[in-house]
């Protein structure tokens, strides 16, 4: 019982992180119909920026945790969004309007490039940072098992919820959101109405990168270790979450991510933990077999 509660907390935390990244996948997929394979690596870049940032602030003698968090978040979001923009501009925009496979290959190339660039410039070793946010609440104890809610978990969940609200507002209420949704529906028509589609796409990539950047910083705070390979695994999980929820659907991405996080957490607790990745994919396959367009995706009527 206590273990279940603990895993619920851990699963939600994990799900929140996946969700922040999954939104980047689902938005990019919605607007240009491609799997942005390099998105996980954007998140990884942000985690490295966070490591540098926290270390630098510690060296400068900044001891206030909220201040350090805020500064690192802002700096990381800014730099990472430039990465998001640059990735789209160099690897995907020249391929717009070509075959479906071309941007996919270019994205895989970009992912390999980013991984190796970070490995070269930041080193291949795992980077552990000094803990930023220590401690937490002990919620309750049953049979010697204390359910623990770490401050970092509270932070992750709160930040994610706040960002989701802000993000929903941006997409539903602002003019950028309208343009973004219009481009998703029909890019040609949107362009004919005088909207700069290229710019909207660039913004979409930057927005996705920003959310991934937040995820990167939060994960660095949560786990305290970073290496150049984390982008791949988490990226795949987040993409799975996006597909799970119905790719192109924003609430779907969030739902899929939370389910993914919970499945993983509970699997680790009760079933052979080394097979947790199998579980994620197996459940994805099962879901897709019965609901081919994901949980919240609109079922596509075959247009004949």
């Amino acid at each position: 019982m206590a273990l279940a509660l603990q895993q619920l907390i851990n699963g939600l935390t994990l799900g929140a992180v996946y969700g922040l990244i999954a939104i980047g996948y689902t938005m990019v997929y919605g607007i240009i119909g491609m799997i942005n394979f390099a998105h996980g690596d954007i998140y990884m870049v942000s985690a490295f920026i966070a490591v540098t940032g926290f270390t630098l602030l510690a060296a400068l003698g900044v001891s206030s945790v909220p201040l350090a968090l805020l500064v690192v978040l802002v700096v990381s979001v800014l730099f990472t969004s430039v990465y998001g923009w640059a990735v789209e501009r160099t690897a995907y925009r020249p391929l717009r309007g070509s075959t479906r496979l071309a941007p996919l290959i270019s994205a895989i190339g970009m992912s390999i490039f980013l991984q190796n660039m970070v490995q070269l410039t930041q080193g291949a070793r795992v980077k552990p940072i000094a803990p930023v946010l220590i401690g937490g609440f002990d919620l309750l104890t049953i049979d010697d098992f204390t359910v623990h809610l770490a401050y970092s978990q509270v932070l992750i969940i709160l930040v994610t919820v706040a960002l989701m609200l802000a993000f929903t507002f941006v997409i539903n209420r602002t003019s950028f959101g309208r343009q973004q949704r219009a481009c998703e529906q029909d890019r040609t028509m949107t362009a004919l109405l005088g909207i700069d589609v290229d710019r909207t796409i660039s913004f979409t990539f930057m927005l996705g990168a920003m959310l991934a950047a937040v995820a990167g910083v939060l994960v660095t705070v949560y786990y305290g270790v970073v290496d150049f390979y984390i982008g791949f695994v988490v990226g795949i999980k987040a993409f799975t979450a996006a597909v799970f929820g119905g790719i192109g659907s924003l609430p779907g991405a969030m739902l899929g991510a939370i389910l993914n996080g919970l499945i993983e957490a509970f699997w680790v607790a009760y079933l052979p933990p080394e097979y947790k990745d199998v579980a994620t994919f197996a459940i994805l396959i099962l879901v897709l077999m019965f609901r081919p367009s994901g949980l919240l995706g609109r079922p596509e009527v075959e247009k004949v």
Binding site: G33, I247, L284, M289
Partner: peptide, 22 residues
Amino acid sequence: TLRLRGDYLAIVTLGFGEITRV
């Protein structure tokens, strides 16, 4: 899986690849 459309198939094949390795 073959009933799935293009990109869903892509992620499922990716998943199978990872499952095999794990």
